[in-house]
Design a protein around this nucleic acid. Structure first.
Length: 462
RNA sequence: GUGGUCUUAGCUCAGUUGGCAGAGCAUCGGAUUGUGGUUCCGAGUGUCGUGGGUUCGAGCCCCACAUUCCACCCCA
């Protein structure tokens, strides 16, 4: 080979171990989605470029991968692009198939998306999103369901998370009351950085973005809002009393918190719980009932995508610093762009790649993912190998994942194979066993072994 | 898109002022021909990211490209 082959920047191969782990994440998420009555769909990797353009803001357009035309049209402007997320293609899907869909439509979708972003750790050019959306109703119960799904998924995965909740109407209201109704985006982009760069720097950026000193001053009580959720909401109600939109947003937030309370989700963060506790609970087959979810009203949460109009969420792992691992919100009129106005939807997206990194960092992947094989047959000769093949067939018919070491080589090698794959049982067949129609079954954890028949073997390892 | 950074054995990484290419782990063989994970002994492995340049001589200096990661920007 003259030169080692490679793959494009920001893309990855997934090896066998990696795939087992990724499937663990996808399977967990799928199971929970299904539990709440969502059904799966898929859409093409490519969409018409007109479907994608202008849906993600100015920045988003720059990050779109364009697909060059082939043949005679090669020189023309691209007509197709790789999908940037799953929400816009879903909106397109709903409009296109509106006659076949009954609302509210609850769907989930697990597929890769592509962004021409500059890669970093946990940021790729090709990555998977796991989207779950309810479209066609505006009840806040849908918001609740999504929050319940977040709680359930992360409880099953054993990750402690905090769900940050905000509302675009509140942000719009804030912009209104400080006398800058058209500057909502500038304001939110700046205050989004509060916990990262601090109050002073945020104020500096607000001024830089063209707000006047008076407006920045008016924003201070909001930026420094603290206390319990109830206290924050009361304060907000007073601050936003002049803004109809803002008050509507506060009402929606209150309703969501009322619903999560009714559904038994705690709501407030409990910083005393340590990850050690969580890991211990995971070891106990995730049988704990305590919720790993805390919900925080976070007025600094903005989210870049400009189609959100109501609730917005973002989920962060408490024990890993990797940014947001799940995010979403309500969009009142996404399908309007495709000619179907008045359909409200709400959805969230789980970032599988980042969840993978969190599970790796916290060492939370179950050991059992390595191999499903329950028993390995090891042999000393051809006759024994033939017997092993017959027995293995019987075990597989009984539903037991079984392997036969393919050649009667040194026992050290055969045992080593079982050890490396963490296979819990080894069935050894030599001359004695062959003549007695029995195997020497060894428990690889305890080292104990016993001479047993096929029937006994099945019941022992089943 | 702007600025920076990384790339050496399968993996993680040393490598001095420019002077014979190194370690740990993993792998393989043996101690032990019917018993793994522990121990001991032994062995192999390199287009030093790619292409060019400077030099008697380049892993090391210079240029270009690719890649990794980081800070902006934005985001899962």
């Amino acid at each position: 080979m003259a030169q080692k082959p490679s793959i494009p920047k920001g893309t990855r191969d997934f090896g066998a171990v990696e795939m087992a782990r990724r499937n663990y994440i996808f399977d967990t998420i799928k199971e929970v989605f299904t539990l709440y009555g969502f059904s799966q769909i898929e859409t093409p990797a490519m969409e018409n470029i007109s479907t994608l353009m202008g849906k993600y803001g100015e920045e988003g357009d720059k990050l779109l991968f364009r697909v060059q035309n082939s043949g005679e049209k090669a020189a023309l402007a691209p007509e197709k692009g790789l999908r940037y997320d799953l929400t816009v293609p879903f909106a397109r899907y709903v409009v296109q198939h509106r006659e076949e869909i009954s609302f509210p439509f609850k769907r989930f979708q697990i597929q890769p998306v592509w962004r021409a972003d500059r890669p970093q750790k946990g940021r790729y050019r090709e990555f998977y999103q796991c989207d779950v959306d309810v479209i066609g109703n505006d009840s806040l119960v849908s918001e609740l369901e999504l929050i319940q799904i977040v709680e359930e998924v992360y409880r099953r995965l054993g990750i402690r998370v905090c769900l940050h909740l905000n509302n675009r109407k509140v942000l719009a209201g804030i912009a209104e009351v400080i006398g800058a109704p058209d500057r909502m985006m500038d304001i939110t982009v700046a205050i989004d950085k509060l916990d990262k760069i601090g109050l002073e720097a945020v104020n500096g950026e607000l001024l830089e973005r063209g707000l006047n000193a008076e407006q920045v001053a008016a924003l201070q009580p909001i930026l420094q809002l603290s206390g319990t959720t109830a206290e924050k909401l009361t304060a907000l109600r007073s601050i936003l009393r002049e803004s109809e939109t803002g008050l509507k947003g506060v009402e929606e937030l209150e309703e969501v918190f009322r619903l999560t309370g009714a559904a038994g989700l705690t709501g407030e963060a409990d910083p005393t719980v340590k990850n050690e506790v969580n890991r211990a609970l995971v070891a106990k087959k995730r049988s704990y009932s305590e919720s790993g979810l805390s919900i925080e009203l976070d007025l600094c949460l903005a989210r870049g995508l400009n189609y959100y109009t109501g609730a917005i969420f973002e989920v962060k792992a408490l024990d890993a610093q990797i940014g947001s691992i799940t995010g979403g919100g309500r969009y009142d009129n996404l399908t309007g762009i495709f000619g179907m106005p008045g359909v409200s939807g709400v959805g969230i997206s789980f970032g599988a790649d980042r969840i993978y990194d969190v599970l790796t960092e916290l060492n939370l992947f179950p050991e059992s993912l390595q191999s499903h094989t329950r028993v390995l047959f090891t042999t000393f000769g051809q006759d024994e190998l033939m017997m092993a093949l017959r027995w293995a067939k019987a075990l597989r018919e009984a539903g037991i994942p079984t392997e036969v070491y393919p050649e009667p080589t040194k026992m050290k090698r055969q045992m080593g194979y079982a050890d490396q794959k963490h296979i819990p049982w080894v069935a050894i067949i030599g001359g004695d066993e062959l003549s007695q129609e029995k195997v020497m079954l060894k428990n690889m954890t305890t080292g104990e072994q016993q001479l047993i028949s096929l029937e006994q073997l099945v019941t022992t390892i089943q």
